[in-house]
Amino acid sequence: MHEYSLVQSLVDRVETLVRERSATAVHRVVVSVGELAGVDPGLFRTAYETFRDGTVCERAALELRTVPASWACPACGRSIPPGEVLACSPCGVPARLAAGGDALLLETVEMEVP
């Protein structure tokens, strides 16, 4: 389970932001989790709830946005339904994953600044 080390990276990044902007509080952290990011949203949340004590994120709500993995043919644009072979047979090319489907991104940090 690597969700704890990911949450640690997240909190470290937020701490840097808080320092840079002399923020007095962090209210909300928004993270997007691609279906193929290799991250279990439930575990990520549990790890966050556990790890945030005593950090700048102690009172910050975590908003998780899940991004489905959507595959399409880069030539004709036809979407490849989940579970199908990841290629477009009429065009003879491999499918391409839409942006975000395999990413774990820190989207927004809402904080109080002077």
Binding site: L6, S9, L10, R13, L17, R21, H27, V31, A103, L104, L105, L106, E107, T108, V109, E110, M111, E112, V113, P114
Partner: peptide, 11 residues
Amino acid sequence: HLVPVELHEKI
């Protein structure tokens, strides 16, 4: 002030 900092960066 409450400000949203938009990052869109990899964790």
